[in-house]
Structures are given as structure tokens and as C-alpha cells.
């Protein structure tokens, strides 16, 4: 009983905020509010990173980049057991699942999988980089929050948004680097 009520209260508060930002001062806020409650909520719930990437049309001015990257790094969470290398077989499931990683939309992965996008670089043979700690850490952090490396990159921050958990991020790392992963098999 409490939950819907709280939700509604939050929505009313959001509308009240919109009221303050009248159509003159911010036509965006006023107009999106009439575009449907759910749509408006997602637009109005933009986090600081999304707001900056929107404001600068994804071309952040150089002087803003260090602070932006620092803020994005601070959003990265790690697995409770501290292990950045998980289970590659589960990683493959997360990689392929359109609702979680959805990685094939942009990247080549398993060379046998032909329906891949070309927006990101090919990840075939990613394991050639080895499994040293710096490689694992970079891979983990890049997957969890790509904006900690490339501000406003197309690559969405799946970890930050909870599309996959820290443990599943470690599984994705394994799918990329493990010698037995189809990405690296010869």
C-alpha cells in the first residue's frame, strides 16, 4: 500500500518542480511533462553526466573532462569478493542478452556469431591482451562505466544503471579474456 503512494508523491513533487520551471524558463521541462508520465520521468531523471552530454551534444569541452571522468569513476562498484575475473560462460549469457549486456548490438564477439554491430571495435581475440591485474581492472571499469574513460561515449554505462551487477561485470570480463572463451579460441 505504501509503495504506490510514495511513488505518486514523488511524481507530484516532480510536477511541482516543473511548475517552478515554467514554459518560459525551460520549455523542455514543461513540454516533456505532457509527453507522458514515464517518458517525462526518464528525461527529468537525467543524472549529471547525461545532463552534461545533452548540453554539449556529446562533445564535452576539454576543461570539463577531468572532473567528469573523476565523477564517473566514483560511480563504479566492485564485486563483494573483490574478484574482477568471473565465470566466462555466464559472461557470455550477459553479453548476448538484449536486456542486459546487448553487446552484439555494437561489437563483434564470437567470430561465429554473424549478426553483430559495427559501432564499437571488434572484441574477437580480446584475450591477446593477457590477464594481468591492470588489464582486468581496465576491462572491468570500462564495461561497468565507459564514461569513466570516454565522456559521453555511445557505450552505455550498464553497471551504473544496473543492467548487470558487479559480479556479472566480472563474468563479462572473463568472457573477454578467458582463453576458453569463444572470443579467444582458435
Amino acid at each position: 500500500m505504501m509503495r504506490p503512494r510514495l511513488k505518486q508523491a514523488g511524481w507530484i513533487a516532480a510536477l511541482a518542480l516543473l511548475g517552478l520551471a515554467s514554459s518560459q524558463s525551460d520549455p523542455l521541462k514543461a513540454a516533456v511533462a505532457t509527453g507522458g508520465a514515464q517518458y517525462a520521468q526518464v528525461i527529468l531523471d537525467q543524472d549529471e553526466g547525461q545532463r552534461l552530454c545533452t548540453q554539449y551534444q556529446s562533445q564535452l569541452p576539454g576543461e570539463l573532462i577531468p572532473k567528469f571522468i573523476e565523477a564517473q569513476k566514483a560511480l563504479i562498484r566492485y564485486p563483494a569478493n573483490g574478484k574482477l575475473l568471473g565465470d566466462w560462460q555466464n559472461g557470455e549469457k550477459v553479453f548476448t542478452d538484449p536486456k542486459r549486456g546487448n553487446c552484439y548490438a555494437c561489437h563483434q564477439g564470437d567470430p561465429k556469431q554473424l549478426a553483430y554491430g559495427t559501432m564499437g571495435p571488434s572484441l574477437a581475440n580480446y584475450g591477446a591482451r593477457g590477464t594481468s591485474e591492470p588489464i582486468l581492472r581496465y576491462t572491468y571499469e570500462k564495461i561497468y562505466n565507459s564514461w569513466a574513460f570516454v565522456p559521453c561515449s555511445l557505450m552505455y554505462r550498464g553497471g551504473v544503471h544496473g543492467l548487470f551487477t558487479p559480479e556479472e561485470t566480472a563474468d563479462l570480463v572473463a568472457f573477454l579474456v578467458d582463453a576458453n572463451s569463444p572470443l579467444n579460441r582458435r
Binding site: V42, I43, D45, Q46, G49, Q50, C53, T54, Q57, S58, W147, C152, L154, Y156, R157, H161, G162, L163
Partner: peptide, 9 residues
Amino acid sequence: YARSGARDM
């Protein structure tokens, strides 16, 4: 040009 939602797009 807005970036929004869980896929930052």
C-alpha cells in the same frame, strides 16, 4: 541530442 534512460542514448 538528449542522452537519457538506462542506455544513456
